[in-house]
Design a protein around this nucleic acid. Structure first.
Length: 255
DNA sequence: ACAGTCAAATGGCGTC
DNA sequence: GACGCCATTTGACTGT
């Protein structure tokens, strides 16, 4: 994929040797970079840059013409550079698609959309996050871009939206996690308090460490208090007093 | 000069 | 086969 980047044409000598690039693609002048980060380029640009300083681009139908005019003027400004560029850039988007693969030069020059193009694409995205072929063609025609470029822009835009949503979800889950941790800590504390309370009211033999409470040989019930996972089961086990096997007692008296 | 960021573009893969 | 999604690459640009 190769684009006719006017910025490069102005600044980089490499573009002069790449006039066989697909000239139908529109590229933002360096002056348009301010739509990305609110900053202007520090590089020198051509005389036609001023044409693109349209910070107050309106949305809606007028946008289309704004974008088209920008693109058209950009191309007109480049008319002196290459006759071929001029010829093809004045063609329709259908023709734009034709030379997708035929250029032997496949340097990957990156397109920078103009602000108007970006705004129009954003507007379109607000209405539908995906485009049907007809919409794509139409949008591409309005923007003087190849349909594939419009398609790619929408794909990347969807990816950005998804990423943003993932970040929002992540933040929400983090908050949930924090809340659950707090709740868990609180419940643990409560459990300890209940255990302490329970033990202090139990008979002496029931306060023996779990290790000393072995399996009752006669009824095969466990006396291991570690299996009691909550205060309720603790209570149950306490009520089943005969099944706690005290090794200090004679087996016959265990149960 | 270099690292970091953003976004256009590519290629692979799955789905319809 | 066209299309969308995803991971990745790559070029343009900024900040230090």
């Amino acid at each position: 994929m190769v684009e006719n980047n006017s910025t490069n044409t102005t600044i980089k000598k490499t573009s002069s040797s790449s006039l066989s690039f697909n000239p139908s693609l529109t590229l933002a002048l360096s002056g348009d970079r301010d739509h990305d980060h609110g900053l202007t380029t520090k590089k020198p640009v051509g005389d036609h840059v001023g044409l693109y300083r349209q910070d107050s681009v309106s949305v809606g139908s007028s946008l289309i013409s704004v974008a088209s005019v920008c693109v058209k003027r950009e191309r007109e400004a480049k008319s002196g550079e290459s006759e071929r560029v001029n010829n093809i850039s004045s063609t329709t988007s259908d023709q734009v698609e034709d030379d997708d693969d035929d250029n032997s030069v496949h340097e990957r020059k990156k397109l920078r959309l103009t602000k108007a193009q970006s705004v129009l694409l954003e507007e379109a995205f607000k209405h539908h996050s995906t485009l049907n072929p007809k919409q794509k063609q139409e949008l591409a025609r309005e923007l003087k871009l190849r349909p594939r470029q419009v398609e790619v822009w929408f794909q990347n835009r969807r990816a950005r939206t998804k990423l943003k949503q993932t970040e929002v979800d992540c933040q929400y889950l983090k908050k949930c996690c924090e809340a659950l941790k707090e709740e868990n800590t609180r419940l643990h504390k409560e459990l300890q308090e209940l255990k302490a309370l329970k033990i202090s009211t139990q008979p002496l033999y029931m306060q023996l460490p779990a290790a000393t409470l072995t399996r009752c040989p006669s009824c095969d019930r466990s006396g291991d208090t570690t299996s009691a996972t909550n205060a309720g089961s603790l209570l149950t086990m306490a009520q089943q007093k005969p099944h706690f096997f005290n090794p200090f007692n004679k087996p016959s008296t265990a149960c």
